[in-house]
Each structure stands twice: as C-alpha cells, then as structure tokens.
Nucleic acid binder design. Sequence first.
RNA 1: GGCCCGUUCGUCUAGUGGUUAGGACUCAUGGUUUUCAUCCAUGCAACAGGGGUUCGAUCCCCCUACGGGCUGCCA
Length: 470
Amino acid sequence: MKKPVVRFAPSPTGYLHIGGARTALFNWLFARQNNGKFLLRIEDTDLERSKIEYVDQIKNALNWLGMDWDDDIIFQSKNNSNHQKVIKELIQSGDAYKCFLTKEELDNLRIQADKNKEVFRVPRTYRDTSEEKQNELIDEGRSYTIRLKVPEGITKFKDLVFGEIIVDNKDLDDFIISRSDGSPTYNFVVAIDDIAMDISHIIRGDDHIANTPKQILVYNALKKNVPIFAHLPMILGSDKKRLSKRHAATNVQEYRDKGFTPDSIINYLSLLGWNPDSNDEIFNINELIKLFNFKQVQKKSAVFDEKKLLWISGQKMKEMTSKDILKEILLIDKAWGKDHNNSYLESVISLTKDRSKNLIDIIDISDIFLINEVNYSDEFKSIMSDQNGTMIIKDFLNAVKIEESWDKQTVEKVFEQIMNQHDIGLGKVMKPLRIAISGISYGPGIFDMMILLGKDLTINRITNAINFYK
RNA sequence: GGCCCGUUCGUCUAGUGGUUAGGACUCAUGGUUUUCAUCCAUGCAACAGGGGUUCGAUCCCCCUACGGGCUGCCA
C-alpha cells in the first residue's frame, strides 16, 4: 500500500470532545500503523463560531493524548483563494453554474411540495442559461449561488466499514458550492482541501456518509482520484443520544481533570466501535497501533460507559510503576507532595495505586501520608471510647516507645503483644490504631502505613488521637 | 415525505446455516485479605417483530417497527 495520508479536521467551535478524540485516534492509529501521515486541519471557516482559544485547546488535548500530527497545521480559512480558483474552473468547464433562484423562491417551492406530498427537488432552472442572459440578470442586480451540475447515473463507493454504498444521482440536488456572498460551502471545501492535501483515506464520523456522494461528485468533476472512505460509528451518551454538550462529561480535558491517564482514555476509546478480535481489553498505545484494523470496526453506534473507563483505568493504575504514576500526577497537580522527596512519594503511591481507579483516587488516598495534622472525626468516638479504643492505642503507644528498631517485624510483634494483653483479635486492635494514625477507617495495610510514616510520626499521631478522643 | 445507515445480555462486544449464543464492564452472592479496595469463584442477563428460503435459521432474502444521519445559501 502506498503510504496513507489521513487527516483529522475539527472545527474550532469548541473543545475537543470524546467523539472527536476517537475519530482522531483511529486516524492516528491507521497512519502510524502504515508509516503514513496524520495531518491536522482546522476547519475555521465559520468565522462567527470559530475561536483561536479552541484551536489551542484542541492542540493541547491531542498532545496530551499523545497523538502527534505531521507537518504544519492547516487552516482551512487560508485556502480560500484555492477554493475560489476551483469554483471558476468548474464554471468554465461547465460542471457548475450560476443559479439565480432566491432563498425565498426555494422556500416556497419546498412548502408547496410538502403540501402536495411531493418530493422536493431543486429545480434546474438556470442550468443551461446562456452567458448573455446571465450577465443581464447580474446587471439587474440579481444575486446568484453556484451549483454543481449533478450528472445522470449513480454514485457509489466502497466504505472500509460500511461496505458498498450506492446512491442514485437523481436523489441528489444540484447542490450549492458557492453562496451568494461568494463563500464556498462545506461539501465543496472539504473535497477541495482533501485534494490539496493529497488525502488518501478519509476516516470520519458516519454522520458524513450521506455527504460522501456529493463530495465524490466534486472529485469527479475535477477528474481527481476519489480517496478511500472509512466511516466510524457515532458515540452516544447514556441516553443513547448523540454525545453533545448536554451530556455529563464530553470534554477530553474533563477526563484529564478527573484523573484519567491518556493511556486509559485511549484504551477505552479504542474499544468503542472496534474490537481487537480477541478477549483482551487492556492495551498500550503501541499494541493498538499493531492491532488496529477497519475489519473489526463496528457499524453500530456505541454508548460511552464511564464505568468501563473506570475499570480500565484501575487496571492501568495497577500495572503502572509508581514512578510513572508520580509523573502523571505531577502533570495534573504540580504542587502535589511538594514537601516530600520523590522516593517517599513513590512509596506512598505503591501503597495506594492498587486500590485506586485513577490518579485522583491515588491523590485522595495518599493524603494521609502527606498531611501534617490528621483530621480526627467525631464519627469514630464510639470505637475509641465504647470499644476501648483509647486504651488499646495507649498501650500500643507505650509498647512502641520502648522499641529500638522500626520495621515490619517489630510492629507485628507489638501488635501481637497488645492482642494478648487485651485478649482480642487483630481486627479489634487494628481499627482504633488505623483511625489514630490516618483519621479514617480504611486504607492501605496498617503495618505498611506505620512503617512508611516512620516511628516518630506514628507516635506523634497516636498521641494526638489520644488527646482528641479522651 | 424522500434517500442512506443501523438493531446480539442494562452497556461494550464475539459468533456461526445445526453452539448449553462466548467474553468484558455493571449488578448480586460467596471466598481470600487486619479495614477499604484488589483478587478469585458463582450467578442474573441478549439474537427487535413478522414472513419467507431451508431438513434446520441469531446468521441468507423480504416486509414492519424502532433508532440515527442526510435532505440548508450549517459544518
């Protein structure tokens, strides 16, 4: 195969959302798998809604996800002269024509057709109007659009996902390629730019399937090779509606803030509308590059399920090294653990990561190792007073104080001592101590916690707890 | 209305002209664990409906229903 050239073409009218990220991902995977090019084109022709800050957000989000693009970013608005040139060519070749029908006329015809229960078609009134007549109309001050002459016949293409799609050209109107203000329309520019960029494979959402024949007609009129199409199923919200701003979290940035790593998101996204043809579900990016193919891409739209994302993320936390996790945490919170050295922080992470679903979980659970003062809660008063907790931790404190060394063996020995002394099980001893050193009733193993905190801090916190719960 | 596309557990999906329709997430139950989580085991749970074709259809064909897209001087 000739090295493919693909593009991701978002319009900068909002941040990068999950659906866009998935489209970008499949483009990127395909390009990287085949040593092709992944180009980024910003479709900023909607001047009203396009904003430069959205361009930055899209770039940042792609960068964060690890999808690097080749060459310079292309801004569609900068191709305007080329668009105009091609429009002229098409008029000259007779493949497009000036149409003087007004919006009002068309609206009326539409209403009329609807009333008569007829299928509305744009009339081809001006298709063969002579140049003299056209000039007359222009002199009269009539405005015009430019329409493509849709030829007789059928238009078909073989979609890599959907298979062969055939459309009868008679179901297509002579569609507008240039508005009365001279600006070109979407279905036209997209084809022109893809030609200019030498795009070989167009990979995009399946909401474009119905547009594809029109774009092919533009290619045909210009006698250009039609690229290969691969349409991807949509991603839906839990209400089965197309993912939109109304849904809870659609912004890639939000998932970053929620503590998901790029690796988790990409892994999950890859499984939406695609399957690896195996029972495996956890992949890193390099594996995905190897495995991806259009044959396994689904035609059916997929519902975004945050629960599954969470599970994948949890699996990733377990398999990532503490060092790498620390790096990721620092990316979302520069100040995290700033009072401690990296080796301590990595030890903290190694105690918390297996019980965490994402980075934010780790940060939350790790808090007890980073704070200066434990926040004790009244909620545990009964354990401390009624269940003899205060006595236990006092005895533990005294026993620990006389110990010379501080390692797991020593701590376990002291625990045993207290268990015998009070004639109770480990659970009963552990609970009040856990609360004393962390302020909460759950978390990493109590021995591990004490060892990591160190003897001084352990003593210190138990003392504070005794004072608080006395 | 017209054209195009889709429909397997709640969700993501595998699958084949003959299967106990498989896996994963979720959920439930049990177990391991010093707590929580993890982990392990078990369980609940699906071929949209109707016609054909066929000895036999989840699978092939047709229709219907439902959902989506396009039908714009939006992208």
